[in-house]
């Protein structure tokens, strides 16, 4: 059985004046897939992602995300996706519960739903003892897990993660990847943008952008075979040098 595509991009392009930031990229991502979207600083991955999450209109080409066209239905896309970034995650001056209530409200959940979801989230992460503590007082690893769960509150079809595990200790990082595997297993697509190549190793498939174009797209295993190297880091170095 062929799995449905939740992201389809065809010749997606973004230009700023003379500069082409994203140059005719074409790819698709399947339901339940963990897809790595890689590129060096300035390769165009942030610009491409902004188009996919409905906050930047393509100059040319098209894309659908969760079934909606990015040019004509950006508001429907925003309701169907979750987003988590390492830079901005939660409000430090609100408690764990307040953050959940706030983001639940933003995502348009009813009060009764928020109550149920909030309890579920706190129990799943074992946060009963700290649910009324300010988020700012919690360790980085906890914040990351909470912010990931918060981005899933409205049961999105796709969750976008921007460099999700940078800086955390190796054990917490793996607990985080276990959460990602579980999420994907339940059918939510996970779209990871990163330039940390060890995060790339965990993805089902990865694409690598160089100067606005997708120069490679496959499973980490096949890419390593293709470039005859042992790590995604070396794949990246080979591609960027050519």
């Amino acid at each position: 059985m062929k799995k449905e595509n939740v992201i389809e991009a065809t010749n997606l392009t973004k230009t700023f004046g003379e500069f082409t930031a994203v140059n005719k990229i074409t790819f698709e991502v399947k339901k339940g897939e963990i897809f790595g979207f890689l590129g060096a600083n300035g390769a165009g991955k942030t610009t491409a992602m902004k188009m996919l999450i409905g906050i930047s209109i393509p100059s040319e080409g098209q894309a659908t995300v969760a079934g909606y066209d990015v040019s004509t239905r950006p508001e429907d896309i925003k309701k169907s996706i979750g987003y988590m970034s390492q830079k901005f995650a939660l409000y430090d001056d609100l408690t764990v519960k307040e953050n959940i209530t706030f983001f639940g409200g933003i995502y348009g959940l009813k009060r009764s739903q928020i109550r149920i979801k909030s309890e579920e989230l706190i129990n799943n992460l074992g946060l009963q003892e700290v649910s009324n503590d300010l988020v700012g007082s919690l360790p980085l690893g906890w914040k990351q897990k909470i912010s990931f769960s918060v981005a899933l509150l409205h049961d999105p079809k796709i969750i976008f993660l921007d460099e999700p595990t940078g800086g955390v200790d190796p054990i917490t990082r793996r607990q985080f990847w276990e959460m990602i595997y579980e999420t994907a297993h339940k059918g939510t697509t996970v779209f990871v943008t990163t330039h940390y190549m060890d995060e790339a190793e965990y993805c089902d498939r990865v694409s690598i952008m160089v100067n606005g174009k997708i120069e490679a797209l496959d499973t980490p295993k096949k890419l390593k075979e293709q470039f005859k190297v042992d790590s995604m880091n070396d794949v990246f170095l080979k591609l960027a040098r050519e």
Binding site: A40, G166, H195, L237
Partner: peptide, 10 residues
């Protein structure tokens, strides 16, 4: 090297 891409890191 935090926040720096693999090429610059190397």
């Amino acid at each position: 090297t935090t926040g720096v891409d693999p090429v610059s890191r190397k």
